[in-house]
């Protein structure tokens, strides 16, 4: 465990990556224009990034790729609920309910 001053140094270094990445092109201003083709390609970044964070969590169970796990099942429920109803809380409630039911109820 990192403690004391070094912990705050770690936070400061992490903060630098936050402003450094988010500000990279915004702070450069006019000097940092990207070619239009690259800008068009970058429209795909958010979808690719969010999915790259979600899918490993759903598909990898105990270090192995396996769709037969409670998180994947809960993920399918979240997908179905979010596509079917507009209520913003429902995916959270039903997704967590399925995960907890499988983990606790069925001991998976």
């Amino acid at each position: 465990m990192i403690e004391g001053v070094w912990l705050w140094v770690a936070f400061a270094l992490m903060a630098m990556t936050t402003v450094g990445t988010r500000g990279s092109f915004i702070l450069l201003g006019e000097k940092g224009r990207l070619p239009p083709a690259l800008q068009r390609a970058l429209r795909y970044a958010p979808a690719a990034a969010l999915s790259a964070l979600v899918m490993p969590d759903l598909l990898i169970d105990g270090g192995e790729v396996s769709p037969l796990n409670p998180k994947f099942a809960a993920g399918l429920v979240v997908l179905a609920v979010a596509l079917r109803w507009r209520n913003p809380w429902l995916p959270f409630i039903l997704g967590m309910a399925v995960l907890l039911a499988m983990r606790k109820g069925l001991g998976w």
């Binding site: 990192i2 070094w6 992490m14 990556t17 936050t18 990445t21 450069l28 990207l34 800008q39």
Partner: peptide, 25 residues
Amino acid sequence: APLWLIMLTALALNLRFVIFSAAIA
């Protein structure tokens, strides 16, 4: 873990913002 590894991990997880930053600049 060493501080440089923590910073590099934060950087990797923040890298998508370079892409967002370029698009929104």
